[in-house]
Design a protein around this nucleic acid. Structure first.
Lengths: 187, 187
DNA sequence: ACCTGAACACCGTTCAAGT
DNA sequence: ACCTGAACACCGTTCAAGT
């Protein structure tokens, strides 16, 4: 069920991931889905959890390394599925992905390790998540847009400032520096 | 047309801001709307622009002051309309709000003033926008959720750490410190 | 220039009834 | 326990034809 939904997402995108279409693909009536899921959001949350599973690999490192790793794994996971960033963003906002909640908890932990006051660590973590989701949704929509169209004009650069990975890392470092400045005092 | 759409948004929320409903409210046929707007996204972009107009008030200050002001004005504008953050987020992501683009340009300017390399100023600006949209969408959904329900349980605090304004400012400062760290060298 | 009528191709959700 | 049939109340978009 979640398998077929994920496959539908990958093959046709989030706009075509409808309850009716999923039912058709499973050779059941639309109503049948409502015995397994309370509503569409719950189904999407389950798909989000599936997408996020690879991003839950544990990492042993200092707090900067943990944040960098989680951000990178999260972005990779989102980019691995058509409209992945958009779907996970929606499920995260609706609070219907437990995996997203777990990821947030780990970032909160890392922020606390950085010396951010307990009351603020969760805020710092959310700031990071908003960035990764926003950046990746943006990247993915451009990516998918010119995948279906121009055969990438390429432009000038050889290796650098317009590589999405490099651009992504810029923001991650910005956030890490901002978090570092949240320590009670610099040592 | 955009007036009625905005009114519909304020009164019933984004889910009920449909082309058919807007047409009904204007005493026209759904098809009539497509003489004025190419599609629904264009209409939503126009509503987004309307919402964002108050956030375009110019501010004279140093770069930190400009970023803080733009973020605050943006959040206020979003909170002034039902589902404002969600609607503007969608229009921004789809690149169909010119006001959002203008706001991004101003943040890019401020980041450049901060000494961020020209190639990176736009990235820093996007990071800020992702934060404001993410934070405010989150805040607004909670706000609207317990506006329709429990008469706010209130909890413990008297003035502080769980005031959304204070929480919002935390992230803004984090971002500003991160941007400051992007300067070629500290003076 | 601006709108209607009517259609096309869909949605999410509910729920009595069946097996 | 799990699903069907059938309905309810909708969607966005197009386009010939009218005024």
């Amino acid at each position: 069920m979640v398998d077929k939904a994920t496959q539908l997402l990958d093959d046709y995108g989030i706009a075509d991931l409808t309850m009716r279409r999923l039912a058709r693909e499973l050779n059941v009536t639309p109503g049948a889905l409502y015995w397994h899921f309370a509503d569409k959001q719950e189904l999407l949350g389950a798909v989000a959890d599936r997408i996020l599973t690879p991003a839950l690999a544990e990492v042993v490192a200092d707090w900067q390394g943990r944040i960098t790793a989680i951000c990178g794994q999260l972005r990779d996971a989102l980019l691995s599925h058509t409209d992945g960033a958009e779907l996970v963003s929606a499920s995260f906002a609706a609070g219907r992905s437990t995996a997203a909640t777990e990821l947030l908890a780990r970032l909160t932990d890392a922020a606390a390790s950085a010396g951010v006051a307990p009351a603020h660590a969760g805020l710092a973590a959310r700031t990071v998540v908003y960035y990764v989701l926003g950046f990746t949704a943006d990247e993915q929509s451009r990516l998918q847009w010119d995948a279906a169209g121009a055969a990438l004009s390429d432009g000038q650069s050889v290796l650098g400032d317009d590589d999405p990975g490099v651009r992504f890392a810029f923001g991650v470092r910005l956030l890490i520096d901002g978090i570092a400045a949240r320590q009670p005092q610099r040592l």
